[in-house]
Amino acid sequence: MGEVVAALDAGTNTLRLLVVEQDADGRLVELDRQLRFVGLGQGVDATRRFSDEAVQRAWAAVDEYVPVLRRLGARRARFVATSASRDASNRDEFFDGVARRLGVVPELISGDEEAALSFTGALAGARIDGEPVLVMDSGGGSTELVRGSASGVIDGAESLDVGSRRIRERYLLSDPPEPGQIAEARAEVGRLLDGLGVDLGGITTFVGVAGTVTTMAALNLGLTSYDRSLVHGSSMSVDEVVALAERLLAMSVDEVIALGPVQPERAKVLCAGALVVAEVVERVGVELQASESDILDGIALSMLRDGKGQVLPG
C-alpha cells in the first residue's frame, strides 16, 4: 500500500475528515471518514464574521481529528476552507488556530477550485451512465455545478452563493417557513440559475454530493437511520426530489429530526438545501444520483496524484 494522506474540509455547516491510502491499482482505500457539525458559517451571511462560538467548535473538531491522523500514520494533509471562509473577515484568526493544532496551514480555495475538486471526487465513486456528466455540490454557503466528461475533463463550472444555511438565514426565518418566505427564496435561487454559465441541458449522468443531497436520498429511501452504504449510488426522480422538498418546507425542525436519519444540526437547514436542490433538478430534468464520494475524495486525490498538501509534523 502507499502513502497515507488526510483530507480536511471546513465547510459552512461541517468540518470533515477523510484518511486514505492508494492501493496498487491507484484506487483510494478509505481508512477513516468523520464529520462534525460545527456551524462555522452560522451568521456569517449577515455579519461577514465567524462567531467566537463557531470558531471554538471548529477548533475542538480539529483537536479530535489530530489523534486520528497520528494513529493511522498520515504523512501529509490538506486542510481546505470554502464558502464560509471566503466570506468571513476574521478567517485568519480561525486559520491560525488550525495551524497551531494541526501543523498544517489551511488553504482558502476559490469557488472554481471547489467545483473542480467536487467533480473529481464525485467521479471517483459515482456510477457513470453516460455523458455529459453534471455534478452538483449543494453546500451550506454555496452550490457548485460542474459539467464535464466521464474522464474528468471539465466543460463548464460555476459556484453560486446560495446554500442551505445562507438561504435559511436570509429567507426562511420561520419554523416551518411561511409561503412568502419560500417564494422569496425560490425567486433568488431562480435568479442565480437564470444567469448560470453552465449548460444544464442534455445531461445523461447527474450526480449530487454533500449532506443535503445524501440526507434527501436517505429520506427518499425511507430509512429511519442513516446508512451510507444504501445512500451511495441511490437515485431520485425529478418528481421525488420536488415532492420531498415540498414536504420538508412544510415541516418544523423538530418534525424533521423525528424522521430518523437527519442529524439535529442538519435538520435546521435541510429545508433550505432541499429547495435549492429541487430548483436545480427541475431545470436539469433527469434523475439525481446521490454520491458519498465528494470534495474530500477530490482533495485526497489532489495530494496523491498532484503532490498537493503539506507534510504533517513528526
Results as ranks from 00 to 15, higher is better:
residue 78 R to V: 03
residue 276 V to S: 07
residue 53 E to K: 13
residue 269 V to K: 07
residue 17 L to S: 03
residue 35 L to W: 13
residue 81 A to K: 05
residue 7 A to W: 12
residue 154 I to L: 11
residue 200 L to K: 03
residue 295 I to G: 09
residue 127 R to S: 13
residue 261 P to N: 10
residue 43 G to C: 11
residue 202 G to R: 06
residue 81 A to G: 05
residue 117 L to V: 15
residue 124 A to F: 05
residue 34 Q to A: 14
residue 8 L to C: 13
residue 245 A to T: 05
residue 299 I to H: 11
residue 156 G to Y: 13
residue 144 E to A: 10
residue 34 Q to N: 14
residue 188 E to F: 11
residue 33 R to K: 07
residue 38 V to H: 11
residue 287 E to Q: 04
residue 136 M to L: 14
residue 270 L to W: 13
residue 68 V to Q: 03
residue 280 V to E: 14
residue 244 L to T: 00
residue 223 L to W: 03
residue 237 S to T: 00
residue 189 V to E: 11
residue 207 V to A: 01
residue 288 L to G: 00
residue 189 V to N: 08
residue 22 Q to G: 14
residue 201 G to E: 14
residue 189 V to M: 09
residue 50 F to G: 05
residue 49 R to A: 08
residue 164 S to I: 04
residue 255 E to S: 11
residue 98 V to E: 15
residue 103 G to N: 09
residue 172 L to W: 13
residue 141 G to S: 01
residue 111 G to L: 03
residue 42 Q to I: 09
residue 218 A to T: 01
residue 209 V to G: 05
residue 35 L to K: 14
residue 193 L to F: 06
residue 295 I to K: 11
residue 41 G to P: 09
residue 23 D to K: 03
residue 22 Q to S: 14
residue 211 G to K: 04
residue 100 R to S: 15
residue 206 F to S: 01
residue 137 D to S: 07
residue 108 L to K: 09
residue 215 T to F: 06
residue 133 V to T: 04
residue 6 A to Q: 13
residue 139 G to Q: 06
residue 73 G to K: 03
residue 114 E to K: 09
residue 208 G to V: 01
residue 46 A to M: 07
residue 175 D to W: 04
residue 273 G to S: 08
residue 221 L to R: 00
residue 309 G to N: 06
residue 22 Q to F: 12
residue 279 E to M: 04
residue 260 G to A: 14
residue 11 G to W: 06
residue 184 E to F: 04
residue 173 L to D: 00
residue 282 E to Q: 15
residue 262 V to F: 10
residue 3 E to F: 12
residue 167 I to E: 09
residue 158 E to Y: 08
residue 273 G to E: 00
residue 275 L to G: 07
residue 238 V to E: 00
residue 14 T to P: 13
residue 280 V to L: 13
residue 53 E to M: 12
residue 276 V to C: 11
residue 175 D to P: 02
residue 194 D to A: 15
residue 115 A to F: 12
residue 84 A to C: 06
residue 55 V to T: 03
residue 286 V to K: 01
residue 145 L to N: 08
residue 133 V to I: 07
residue 143 T to K: 06
residue 144 E to F: 05
residue 138 S to P: 03
residue 115 A to T: 07
residue 294 D to F: 09
residue 96 D to F: 00
residue 76 R to Q: 10
residue 102 L to Q: 10
residue 310 Q to P: 15
residue 283 R to F: 10
residue 102 L to I: 14
residue 202 G to C: 04
residue 17 L to W: 05
residue 197 G to N: 14
